[in-house]
Design a protein around this nucleic acid. Sequence first.
DNA 1: CCCTGCTATGACACCGATGTCATGACACCG
DNA 2: CGGTGTCATGACATCGGTGTCATAGCAGGG
Lengths: 344, 344
Amino acid sequence: MATIYDVAKQAGVSPKTVSRVINRDAPVGLKTRAAVEAAIRELDYRPSRAARTMRSSRSGLVGLITGAISRGDGSAGPSGLPDLFIVQAIQREVAEAGMTLMIADTGGEADRAAELMATFAQHRVEGLIYVADHHQRIEELDPRGTPLVLANCFDAIGTPAILPDDRAGQRALVERVISAGHRRIAYLTLPEGMIATELRSRGYREALEAAGISFDPALVTEGFADHGEGPKPFIAPALDRLLALEDRPTVICCGNDELALRLYGELRDRGIRVPQEISVAGYDDYRVISETLYPPLTTADLNYRGIGEAAARRLLSLIAGASVPAEVELIGGPVCWRQSVTEH
Amino acid sequence: MATIYDVAKQAGVSPKTVSRVINRDAPVGLKTRAAVEAAIRELDYRPSRAARTMRSSRSGLVGLITGAISRGDGSAGPSGLPDLFIVQAIQREVAEAGMTLMIADTGGEADRAAELMATFAQHRVEGLIYVADHHQRIEELDPRGTPLVLANCFDAIGTPAILPDDRAGQRALVERVISAGHRRIAYLTLPEGMIATELRSRGYREALEAAGISFDPALVTEGFADHGEGPKPFIAPALDRLLALEDRPTVICCGNDELALRLYGELRDRGIRVPQEISVAGYDDYRVISETLYPPLTTADLNYRGIGEAAARRLLSLIAGASVPAEVELIGGPVCWRQSVTEH
DNA sequence: CCCTGCTATGACACCGATGTCATGACACCG
DNA sequence: CGGTGTCATGACATCGGTGTCATAGCAGGG
């Protein structure tokens, strides 16, 4: 690879002048500039970031740590793959800011994060983002002075964090369902103990309250159950209970789209048509599912993309030295109304 | 960030001795080593990769270019999101080799690849991988001396490429279906013109031939059709044709799992039970779909993960200076037999 | 005509590692 | 006891850029 010295010699100028042409940080004579630019093209010269980094201690790198990447063995957690959308959005924002993204994953072992941060430190990344695979609280990380932003998770020491607004999302979805004329609204939740479960349940109850519908505990039940290898949708008993109710629900809201997909199958198995006999709603707007299902699924957009964008932007402003206004930012998404819920 | 000089001063030795302790490339006295290690811990010292790169011109970086990342707007192509598994697998292999992965995406514009490669060149990546979102032929890239491996695509000039073995995969699946007792096997293909469509159709025909079943063109029809914004599963007419046949198929093989998901819905809509009245098979083993669908979907594992691993390993051996045996490598996966196809 | 002020350019040191070579301190051997 | 070899360590140059400062050239004003 050609160096700045090669270019300088070829153009008959000093290396410093070549540097000036590249960085436009000082005036350069017209003819000189042309000669240098010609030499650069001829030699296919690319300035070495390594050398530049040494002098300026600005590497142009952002490090991203995630557990999202390594679940390639298919052992997807409750919220599945779509958190990769967060990574995608971050990539785009970072690239737009002229920086390059380095990624690494913990392989599922949370304590490997420290090791990965050491690697990033060697590369002198200017900022770090940690992306979790679902809304959760994490053990605090020690970025040793490098700006750090958390996406889809938070910690106990108030590190800047971007989180999905599960409460508002579920509330908006249920309110919309109510305005479509439903009154008996069942809710098949994600596993208990998850933060998303807690927040979405609250949103569900708030929506009922706001509409003056009394909360009926018989309509709320967990849609997942452990059986062997991790939580998988296992909803048959819960579903049977709901269907056996005197005052049967007219719609079933699911903790996520995967659960809704499974529910479609279980309902078909019982000869119950969606949405004519019962309506179904999901959560996440995992499009491969929500748009491909037949009928297409009404769901709440979790807006992973918005989370990624917000995280990247927050980090970039931290790198730029901005003061941070709010520590935690909630990102919402619209309700995606499709044909799986009847109107009126 | 502390430098090697800080450590040297703290430990009362020369920088070179610190270097020796870090790299273990020359003997160091026991007491000296201990002093240096203590100083390193105390100062939380991390050697600068940038400085190391300058000296050795080995950056420890691998660049990955993809269009896979940027489809975050949900406009998933026919093969959807799962090509991200390739990225995941590459990440893992690269990390295992002690290198760090940089990623960038073209944002859908293929000609941006050159620009991204220039950025990577500035960082002096030691190798490049290009990942396509579906099996395709691409315009040739000019890596200017840096080793390059293509994943899920190939070019006209014989750049090392790792490809899914669509033909063998479809053949194995259909053979397995035949051995389960099926004779009338319909095939709902991906859009015509795609390489995967061509190869999988060939596999389908080979399997029939091998079993002595004559090929019936009435059983093969395209499952996608353009209607407005891009190809989406739109299978109602094709399905009606298949169901109206005198000698109705007992199983429908789909071009991918998404199509199978859609087919479940369409069949339910017609009151036809899977698999009791008709069996369904997919392709890809997109687990969120294949395992969550009810009944779980029989499908062929496209093995994106294997493609990623092979691509990474190929690149690493190119970086190590190995000679390349075969230019193109086909990666297959097993048939995933689940309950959506009846046995006997 | 000389001085001032500006523009364009170059010389040189430095960022933080590591390869090369030199050297001091011993131990061992005849 | 002197020569030789080994071990541990340090001095110094170097990788490829950029910040600092110096300087040559030239125009304009008094």
